[in-house]
């Protein structure tokens, strides 16, 4: 019995994307996850940079 199939037996779970074996393995594959961590860190730095850029100085009223 494959895990993702069992879950779909419930109608509430119909519109979900349930990871198959490959996706589940990738989620815990250390090498791949290291790459993803670097990737996500780069993205996060992007967000931080945008926040810094958006911090403007307004004249006090």
């Amino acid at each position: 019995m494959i895990k993702e199939e069992r879950n779909f037996a419930d109608p509430q779970f119909e519109t979900a994307m349930i990871p198959g074996r490959f996706q589940r393995t990738m989620r815990h594959c250390i090498v791949w996850q290291l790459i993803r961590m670097v990737f996500f860190s780069v993205r996060s730095i992007g967000i931080i940079m945008v926040n810094l850029k958006n911090e403007k100085e307004l004249p006090s009223t």
Partner: peptide, 14 residues
């Protein structure tokens, strides 16, 4: 039907 797409199983609805 529920099918494999990109390593995920999804309903053909999505």
């Amino acid at each position: 039907m529920h099918m494999k797409v990109n390593g995920y199983v999804v309903s053909s609805r999505i």
